[in-house]
Design a protein around this nucleic acid. Structure first.
Length: 466
RNA sequence: GGCGACGUGGCCAAGUGGUAAGGCAUGGGUCUGCAAAACCCUGAUCACGGGUUCGAAUCCCGUCGUCGCCUCCA
């Protein structure tokens, strides 16, 4: 079994093969930074983090580029409203998003390019497209000539004729075709702008990704990712620009994640139905969001609701409980139990990989992890020792890591409290012998309030930080 | 109007030709002084209608519904 991925370009699952053996180049469209990012943005970053982690797990070196769009109409609008510099406004939100990426345990990309620092490269490509006849200048604007590009529409499966006839955009008569899109826009006063052969101006939205990808990953890349709302026009236009410029196929695999749904609609800034990453993380730990994404197909819409969040928290807790140590003084499990555990380890190992190889079927992969948890718990109940549990638990930890989950409870022994907690529990043990239930329950309740969860078993009492 | 996706038990959700993973919740039981955790048992024929097939949730046609894109958007 080898990795298969669903390619939007062919609308099929394809065997994954990288251009260069052992190396994968991956470009993912990042956010336009004009406001606080929401959990939908996080979903995209998380999805491709999981893709990357699995690729790395299977032995690839991944060159991963994620851009920040820091020059854009909305940023300019917002900056004028707040009476601040547009680039500085963008900078503010970039810093914030960087922080979110860390908090969400997303592996750092190889490069995080942004528009404002790539202008020279953009100018070069725009000029190149003009020289090759794929673009033309009108009054300081430069447009891409879609009619010159024979396979325009191949990603989003649209025909130019249909689009033009169905178009309800007020057509700019200066454009040769209504579908021609801007590569360079002449600047209005007060907007951030750069000098160009066509006068003061700034890049259009689509050209930046083509250029950054070219600059940081080369003419051809393996994976291009982003939300499925970008398929048209953004990615379609990227293909048009890149392939017209280099004369080579651009990205081999186009991967698109589904949209986060809040009360039945796509979460988005323009609709105003959103939960910011910031507010989500105030209420929940990062792994909860990751777990929500893992529990369904990355290509499908994801239901976001309080109920689902609560369900996810519990599921995560169950996964972690699979890593609890053996009962204190466990006598050791019988051979059949140990054997059953060993078999489940094998099944989980094979099942997990097969699921992930099938277009990153994380929900299926999680299923195998949960089954392993159940068998671990069975073994634990049957007096398995830490040593006997170890192979299963380390596999669980390993796969958790592949998915980017930190299942191991942080052993943040607050101010060396452990010996004192042990002492308390020893005293509580004496209280229980005397059947002083009120007192012993008081200890349990108070410890709970302090974040210490205890578990009474036949052979003794264990505890862990929550 | 055009293009595309989806509709699986109360909720979330795998599975795309051979008689429905997993998680959460529910109900019953075991363990426990009680509790928590855990373990065992418990429920769906897969929107609807028709067709292809020995056999379909899985393929085809139609209907209904939901969502995305076609304008900035992860």
């Amino acid at each position: 079994m080898s990795l298969h991925v669903y390619n939007t370009l062919s609308r099929n699952k394809e065997t994954f093969e990288s251009l260069k053996p052992g190396v994968v180049s991956m470009y993912v469209c990042g956010p336009t930074v004009y406001d606080k990012a929401h959990v939908g943005h996080a979903m995209s970053s998380l999805v491709f983090d999981i893709v990357r982690r699995y690729l790395e797990y299977t032995g690839y070196e991944v060159r991963h580029v994620m851009n920040y769009t820091d020059v854009d109409d909305k940023i300019i609008q917002r900056a004028q409203y707040e009476e601040v510099d547009a680039i500085e406004l963008a900078e503010r939100y970039i810093t914030q998003y960087d922080q979110h990426l860390k908090e969400l345990n997303i592996l750092p990309a190889t490069v995080y390019p942004r528009v404002s620092t790539e202008i020279q490269n953009i100018l070069q490509v725009v000029q190149g497209l003009i020289d090759k006849g794929y673009a033309y200048e009108v009054d300081g604007d430069v447009y891409f000539r879609v009619n010159k590009d024979d396979d325009y529409g191949k990603l989003s499966n649209r025909k130019l004729d249909d689009m033009e006839s169905g178009s309800r955009i007020n057509v700019d008569s200066r454009k040769e075709s209504p579908m021609d899109f801007a590569l360079w826009k002449s600047a209005k006063p007060g907007e951030p702008s750069w000098e160009s052969p066509w006068g003061e101006g700034r890049p259009g939205w689509h050209i930046e990704c083509s250029v950054m990808s070219l600059e940081h990953l080369g003419e051809q890349i393996d994976i291009h990712g982003g939300g499925n709302d970008l398929v048209f026009p953004h990615h379609e236009n990227e293909i048009a620009q890149s392939e017209s410029y280099t004369g080579k196929p651009f990205a081999r695999y186009w991967l698109h994640n589904g949209m986060m749904q809040l009360s039945g609609e796509k979460m988005s800034k323009s609709l105003g139905n959103l939960v910011t990453i910031e507010s989500f993380l105030e209420e929940n730990e990062a792994d909860v969001l990751r777990m929500m994404i893992l529990n369904s197909s990355y290509r499908s819409p994801l239901t976001f609701s309080d109920e689902v969040i609560e369900q996810t928290k519990k599921a995560l807790e169950r996964l972690r409980n699979g890593l609890r140590p053996a009962f204190p003084g466990a006598a050791g499990a019988d051979a059949p139990v140990v054997e059953m555990l060993a078999e489940q380890v094998k099944a989980t190992d094979a099942g997990f990989r097969a699921a992930m190889d099938d277009d990153f079927n994380t929900a299926g992969a999680l299923g195998y992890m949960f089954e392993l948890v159940r068998v671990i718990n069975q073994a634990r109940d049957a007096q398995a020792t830490d040593e006997q549990l170890q192979p299963a638990q380390s596999l669980l930890t390993e796969f958790g890591g592949v998915l980017g989950l930190s299942l191991v409870r942080e052993v943040s022994d607050q101010a060396g409290a452990a010996p004192f907690i042990d002492l308390l529990l020893e005293v509580r043990g004496e209280l229980r012998k005397e059947k002083l239930w009120q007192l012993s329950d008081l200890v349990r309740d108070k410890l709970k309030e302090l974040g210490v969860s205890i578990e009474d078993t036949k052979t003794g009492t264990t505890w862990h930080w929550e």
